[in-house]
Amino acid sequence: GAPPLPPYSAGGREVTMKKGDILTLLNSTNKDWWKVEVNDRQGFVPAAYVKKLDSGTGKELVLALYDYQEK
Protein backbone atom coordinates (compact mmCIF):
# COMPACT_ATOMS: atom_id res chain seq x y z
CA GLY A 1 0.00 0.00 0.00
CA ALA A 2 0.87 3.66 -0.13
CA PRO A 3 3.14 5.15 2.53
CA PRO A 4 1.52 7.22 5.29
CA LEU A 5 0.85 10.82 4.37
CA PRO A 6 3.08 13.45 5.96
CA PRO A 7 1.34 16.39 7.66
CA TYR A 8 0.30 18.88 5.01
CA SER A 9 2.74 21.76 5.17
CA ALA A 10 3.10 22.95 1.61
CA GLY A 11 0.79 25.93 1.94
CA GLY A 12 -0.73 25.57 -1.50
CA ARG A 13 -3.32 23.51 -3.22
CA GLU A 14 -2.86 19.84 -3.97
CA VAL A 15 -3.44 18.04 -7.25
CA THR A 16 -4.87 14.63 -8.00
CA MET A 17 -2.72 12.06 -9.75
CA LYS A 18 -3.14 8.46 -10.79
CA LYS A 19 -0.54 5.72 -10.47
CA GLY A 20 1.56 5.73 -13.63
CA ASP A 21 1.05 9.44 -14.39
CA ILE A 22 4.13 11.36 -15.51
CA LEU A 23 4.21 14.81 -13.89
CA THR A 24 6.51 17.78 -14.36
CA LEU A 25 8.42 18.54 -11.16
CA LEU A 26 8.46 22.27 -10.42
CA ASN A 27 9.86 22.42 -6.90
CA SER A 28 11.23 19.79 -4.51
CA THR A 29 12.63 22.02 -1.74
CA ASN A 30 10.00 20.80 0.73
CA LYS A 31 11.06 17.27 1.67
CA ASP A 32 7.50 16.02 2.18
CA TRP A 33 5.48 17.82 -0.50
CA TRP A 34 6.66 18.49 -4.04
CA LYS A 35 5.13 21.00 -6.42
CA VAL A 36 4.22 19.45 -9.75
CA GLU A 37 2.28 20.29 -12.86
CA VAL A 38 -0.26 17.85 -14.27
CA ASN A 39 -2.80 18.56 -17.00
CA ASP A 40 -1.98 22.30 -16.89
CA ARG A 41 -2.68 22.42 -13.15
CA GLN A 42 -0.02 23.16 -10.58
CA GLY A 43 -0.11 21.90 -7.04
CA PHE A 44 1.47 19.70 -4.43
CA VAL A 45 1.71 15.93 -4.06
CA PRO A 46 3.36 13.84 -1.33
CA ALA A 47 7.03 13.35 -2.22
CA ALA A 48 6.87 9.72 -1.04
CA TYR A 49 4.20 9.04 -3.69
CA VAL A 50 6.39 9.95 -6.67
CA LYS A 51 9.79 8.99 -8.05
CA LYS A 52 12.15 11.22 -10.03
CA LEU A 53 12.75 10.13 -13.61
CA ASP A 54 15.79 10.83 -15.73
CA SER A 55 14.08 12.54 -18.65
CA GLY A 56 17.17 13.67 -20.51
CA THR A 57 15.29 16.76 -21.68
CA GLY A 58 16.33 19.17 -18.94
CA LYS A 59 12.81 19.08 -17.52
CA GLU A 60 12.49 17.22 -14.27
CA LEU A 61 9.80 14.58 -14.42
CA VAL A 62 8.35 12.37 -11.74
CA LEU A 63 6.37 9.14 -11.96
CA ALA A 64 3.31 8.69 -9.75
CA LEU A 65 3.80 5.49 -7.74
CA TYR A 66 0.35 5.64 -6.13
CA ASP A 67 -3.01 7.29 -6.69
CA TYR A 68 -3.39 10.53 -4.78
CA GLN A 69 -6.68 12.38 -4.36
CA GLU A 70 -6.47 16.05 -3.49
CA LYS A 71 -8.23 16.98 -0.28
Rank of each mutant, 00 (worst) to 15 (best):
K51A: 13
L61C: 05
A64L: 03
W34S: 01
R41W: 06
V38R: 14
S28I: 06
E37R: 09
T24D: 05
A64Y: 01
S9P: 14
Y68D: 00
Q42W: 13
S28C: 08
K19G: 04
L5W: 06
W34P: 00
Y66E: 04
L65Q: 04
P3L: 06
E14Q: 11
K59T: 13
K19V: 09
L61Q: 14
K35H: 15
L5V: 10
K52P: 12
L23K: 00
R41G: 10
S28L: 04
L63S: 04
V15A: 06
V45L: 02
G56K: 06
G11A: 15
A2M: 13
M17H: 01
N27M: 08
Y49V: 02
G1S: 15
A2I: 12
D40H: 11
A64R: 01
V38Y: 11
G11D: 15
V62P: 00
V62Y: 08
V36E: 01
L63A: 04
V38L: 12
L26I: 13
A64Q: 00
G11C: 10
G43I: 06
L26K: 06
E37M: 10
P7N: 10
D32E: 12
A47Y: 02
D67C: 03
E37S: 09
D67A: 04
G12T: 07
V15P: 02
T29C: 09
P4R: 05
A48Y: 05
F44G: 01
T24L: 12
K31W: 06
W33L: 02
T16Q: 08
Y68W: 08
S9N: 12
D54F: 09
R41L: 14
D21M: 15
M17R: 00
A64V: 09
G58T: 12
S9A: 13
G56M: 13
G56R: 03
E70I: 08
K52G: 05
F44P: 01
Y8I: 13
E70G: 14
L23F: 10
N30T: 05
K18N: 08
L5N: 06
G20E: 02
K51P: 01
A64W: 01
T16S: 15
D40E: 12
G43P: 01
D54A: 09
S55I: 13
I22M: 06
N39D: 15
K35T: 07
L25Q: 01
V62L: 12
I22P: 01
A10V: 10
E14P: 15
A2H: 12
V62Q: 00
Y68M: 02
P46D: 01
D54Q: 13
K59I: 15
A48F: 04
K52W: 06
W34L: 04
N39T: 10
G1L: 10
K59A: 13
E70Q: 08
K71H: 11
K18R: 09
D67T: 05
E60W: 09
T29Y: 08
G11Y: 03
P3G: 06
R41M: 14
A47F: 01
A10T: 12
P46C: 02
L23R: 01
K19M: 06
P7Y: 06
N30V: 04
E60R: 11
D40L: 11
L65A: 03
A47R: 07
G56C: 06
Q69E: 09
P4Q: 12
G20V: 00
T24Q: 07
A2K: 10
A2T: 13
G12N: 06
G1A: 14
L53D: 03
G43V: 06
P4M: 11
T24K: 12
Y66G: 02
W34K: 00
A64E: 00
T29A: 12
V38D: 10
E37H: 05
Q69P: 14
N30D: 13
P7R: 02
M17F: 09
L26W: 04
Y66A: 05
S28A: 13
Q42E: 12
V62S: 02
K18A: 08
W33P: 00
G43D: 02
N39M: 14
P46I: 02
G56Y: 14
N27C: 07
W34C: 03
A48D: 08
M17A: 04
G20T: 02
V45Y: 00
K19H: 06
P3Y: 05
K52E: 07
Y8H: 15
T29F: 09
G1H: 11
A2C: 10
K35L: 13
L23S: 02
D54Y: 15
A10C: 10
D67E: 05
S9T: 10
K51T: 14
V50R: 00
K52R: 14
L61N: 05
K59M: 13
T29W: 08
V15S: 04
V62A: 10
S9E: 10
K51E: 13
L23Y: 10
Q42D: 08
T24M: 12
Q69N: 14
L25W: 01
D21T: 07
K19N: 04
P6A: 02
M17T: 04
G11T: 08
L61V: 09
V38Q: 11
S9R: 05
Y68E: 00
M17K: 00
N39E: 14
T24Y: 07
K35Y: 15
A2V: 13
D32S: 07
P46T: 02
Y49K: 02
V36F: 00
D40Y: 10
L26G: 01
G1Q: 14
V15K: 02
A47H: 02
V62H: 02
T24N: 08
R41S: 11
Y66D: 03
Y8F: 12
G43R: 03
V15F: 13
E37T: 13
K35S: 07
T57G: 15
K71S: 15
T16P: 15
P3M: 06
P3Q: 04
K31M: 11
D54H: 13
E37N: 06
Y66H: 07
V36P: 00
L53E: 04
G56Q: 11
K18F: 10
M17E: 01
E70V: 12
P6G: 03
L53Y: 14
T57P: 14
W34V: 04
A47D: 01
W34Y: 07
P46E: 00
K31H: 12
T16N: 12
G11V: 11
G58I: 12
D67Q: 03
Y68S: 03
